[in-house]
Design a protein around this nucleic acid. Structure first.
Lengths: 359, 359
DNA sequence: TTTGGTAATTGAAGCGCTTCATCTGGATCC
DNA sequence: GGATCCAGATGAAGCGCTTCAATTACCAAA
């Protein structure tokens, strides 16, 4: 363990190790990368020298010589949204088991940043890129692929079929949420909030619409909002409760938990009971879904699996010469809690009653 | 914009650019890095060639030749905790303005992962590392510094004076929280939850203790918990409300918003009024602090500033030969909401009444 | 002993860039 | 006209590694 301080100023190189160990440069490289190709004696000498010098391989030199690195880059849209955090986690875990490190870059919902991070990973010749694109042009994808970079899209693919992607079935999520409300006997549904230009939100709305059409005896009102924050939910809830009683919705579904939280709070503040008067269901199963006044029913996407599957697709693309692009669409899960089911008792955090409705 | 596809298989190199532009390799390099050293004519020729070939510099080769890269690494403890997310954001913003890219690595509260990511950044010869260490050995710091890597500690420094650090005054935060409760007239305080082995939590507890001592006429009870989740808060709240009325605390402070949320919900479920019967204050100003049943007072650390300052310190260490290590300790802010102040109205999300108490 | 044949090792040729000493071609001055 | 400069351009020397063809070492079989 006697790694020496950097006396020469310069960090020790493999050449130094070779000299100290009394073997050639190539042997050191082999000892480090494919130990089975090297005699026990050399291996031991090299290891001792590495230890003594505190040698750390220079990954820049390595990837230059080898032609590519072994790290995988993940360009994240919004590190604040727990879905992306889960994706990152899943990707991390999966990458790790196959000896790849995962580096994250957060574009913070900024197109220019997103593109610039794609380029950084591209310039770093990473083994591959996981990309959760903004709802905008996918030109960056083409750009880096032209340079031979492998890339897997996560959570949004803009309809592309020419690369691997892991998506969540947003339409189905919206459908499940609406059908759940309808099965509870609700008939005047409201789809509350969300900028319609987002693909995911449009899909969720379409799914809800499908459930309503299918039921025949229910209606769906749609009130969009500019953002996804909780005060938008409050505003919408305030608006609809000002109406004559027979025009107040009895079931509200929202494309984000945040908006749903605002809706719930405002409804309660105005003396309406949730779920008795109005049932509310959110989307995303964010952390705070169980920390609101009334624990919230919601639609959960399994970010962890999305991330893990994305890495698997990427690794196949890297290693398998006969790789064919695939698009994985995961079904979201319905998570039922107090805001639709009601409950005399209090919500059980952590392990709720979790019902999974499959289509 | 006619970047060609990778026909040769190989990505175009600077050599290719030089050939196409009809200039030498060195000129291309200059044109790219210090355009002012190159004639307008060459510059234009090079740029045209770059465009035509779709040339992307190889950052591995660049950092190998230059001896170091320009990206900065941030090793994060827990991407789930919004404090770290804010730190990442602040660091990102600050790094960006000085032309450095920031790559994140999430150790997920795992010591081995943390060390391995330190090594990855070390091997990548990054310009510097921002490090939010676990509450464990800081040996990784010494390891990478021996290799000449610059590193700035964020949020925890284990008492080290020999490198730059940006900390939050946890003791003062605890003090402010407790003093606030005391100023509200509360006398039987409870410090609810938190594993005592965490430095930050011990400090917060110490601060609370100091405020109580200072007041003279108040008491502080301490009930630790193994984790920081909300059900621990519920458990503790349940426990203390079972007591005879004169032994029920009238002010509860918790070292995490999550626990505080559990406390609030359980108190309300048991018919106690917050804050009339028991005032509750959390710590961290997590996103959901305004999404709970009653918006929560809390102590906020300015993660964004921490991240930004950390980058500034790092850049000074990199660029300034006369750099001296500094330890910045930022004061947290008291954010007062319904759970201590009460309010007839409903909480105003986003922009609350924010009172800042300075020491 | 000779002859293969395999296992281990070696050394050199790059990977694509930065940088530095060197060289070139004008413009400027006496 | 010749000496002096200087902005620009050049080409080669590396940065620290991987890899591969070539070499040596060693052991078993003939």
């Amino acid at each position: 363990m006697t790694s020496q301080t950097a006396d020469g100023g310069r960090a020790p190189s493999m050449q130094d190790v070779a000299r100290l160990a009394g073997v050639s440069l190539g042997t050191v490289s082999h000892a480090l990368n494919k130990p089975e190709k090297v005699s026990a004696r050399s291996l031991q000498k090299v290891r001792a020298a590495v230890e003594q010098l505190g040698f750390v391989p220079n990954s820049a030199a390595r990837s230059l010589a080898a032609g590519s690195s072994s790290t995988v880059g993940l360009v994240l849209t919004d590190i604040d949204n727990s879905l992306f955090v889960d994706i990152a986690r899943g990707a991390e875990d999966q990458a790790r088991t196959s000896g790849h490190a995962l580096l994250l870059a957060n574009s913070d919902v900024d197109f220019k940043r997103q593109e610039s991070y794609l380029d950084i990973f591209d310039e770093a010749r990473v083994a591959g890129i996981l990309f959760t694109p903004l709802n905008a042009s996918l030109e960056g994808v083409d750009r880096v692929r032209r340079h031979g970079r492998r890339i897997v899209l996560v959570n949004y693919a803009g309809g592309r079929q020419d690369c691997c992607a892991v998506l969540s079935d947003e339409e189905h999520g919206g459908y499940m949420a609406a059908r759940h409300l309808i099965e509870l006997g609700r008939r005047r549904l409201l789809f509350a909030g969300g900028p319609e230009e987002f693909h995911a939100i449009k899909e969720r709305r379409n799914g809800a619409l499908r459930a309503v059409m299918e039921a025949g005896n229910a209606t769906l009102e749609i009130i969009p909002s500019r953002r996804l924050k909780s005060d938008e939910g409050r505003k919408i809830a305030a608006e609809v409760t000002d109406r004559p009683a027979d025009r107040v919705p009895d079931g509200i579904l929202s494309p984000s938990d945040r908006i749903a939280a605002g809706v719930i709070h405002e409804l309660m503040a105005r003396g309406l009971r949730v779920p008795e008067d109005v049932a509310v269901i959110g989307y995303d199963n964010n952390q705070f879904a169980t920390e609101v006044a009334i624990s919230m029913s919601t639609v959960a996407q399994d970010g962890h699996t999305m991330g893990a599957e994305a890495i698997s697709l990427l690794l196949d693309e890297i290693r398998n010469p006969h790789h064919e692009h695939r698009i994985l669409t995961l079904k979201p899960r319905l998570i039922l809690r107090e805001s639709t089911l009601g409950s005399g008792g209090r919500p059980l955090p952590e392990e709720d009653r979790r019902l999974t409705l499959e289509a």
